[in-house]
Design a protein around this nucleic acid. Structure first.
Lengths: 116, 116
DNA sequence: TTGATATATATCAAAAAGTATATGTATAGT
DNA sequence: ACTATACATATACTTTTTGATATATATCAA
């Protein structure tokens, strides 16, 4: 996997993209509607941010039925995976990141269960 | 030290700011004219980038005579220091970062020796 | 105090990134 | 085939960031 460090940092430089990436790392895999719910963003907005993270090589998308699931691209170079994991370890217990996790956990009708 | 993760990533999201930060990490301390030389940027441009890194809490400045020396702020939270160090370990051997180091090493008249 | 050097800041135009909104596409159920 | 849902993309508009340039400040030496 060849990613430019500049692109990597640019992709994570938007607060919502950072939150999305860290939340996806923590939950392993999330679909667009779950992220829309957790981050309280309009669907086209989150879609575009996810597209940017995917274009930077940070996320992979998997389509399943109506849903598209995003996850961290584990083919990223180790330094990049380390950076994301280290950031998560450092800040996931603080606001707003911990609330995002909470929002996912308490989301009433997640797909694979019912839908969104 | 309280830094917002978003500000941290934003500060490093510009290619020149990332190069400057990694170069400063490697060389411990560099003045503006050394960075201007190594990164081949106009002085006001590098000054502004350095000001942004300082404002984000990533760099500290120390004035000595005519020169201002910048260094990594070691009061950053550990996750942030780890992230920078991990990135450096991962990419400093590749272009353009290795060339920046080379440019500093071969710079003919660095201050503390003669001046710039 | 004059001049030279190093750095910072201000201003403005250009470029990039962001948001909101509308629309398009794909899938699944009826 | 029709409808609803999930997601992506295009468009127009606004805001932010960046780069060039000019100018200001600070330090030191003559």
């Amino acid at each position: 996997m060849d990613i430019q460090a500049g692109d990597f940092y640019s992709a994570l430089s938007h607060p919502m993209r950072l939150r999305a990436a860290l939340l996806i790392l923590k939950m392993d895999e999330l679909c667009v509607c779950e992220l829309t719910h957790a981050l309280d963003l309009a669907q086209p907005v989150i879609s575009r941010h996810l597209a940017q993270l995917k274009e930077a090589g940070i996320l992979l998308a998997r389509k399943q039925g109506l849903w598209v699931y995003y996850r961290i691209n584990d083919a990223l170079p180790n330094w990049a995976l380390d950076v994301i994991q280290t950031t998560a370890n450092g800040i996931m217990d603080s606001t707003p990141y911990k609330d995002d996790t909470q929002a996912i956990s308490t989301m009433s009708d997640r797909p694979n269960q019912v839908c969104c």
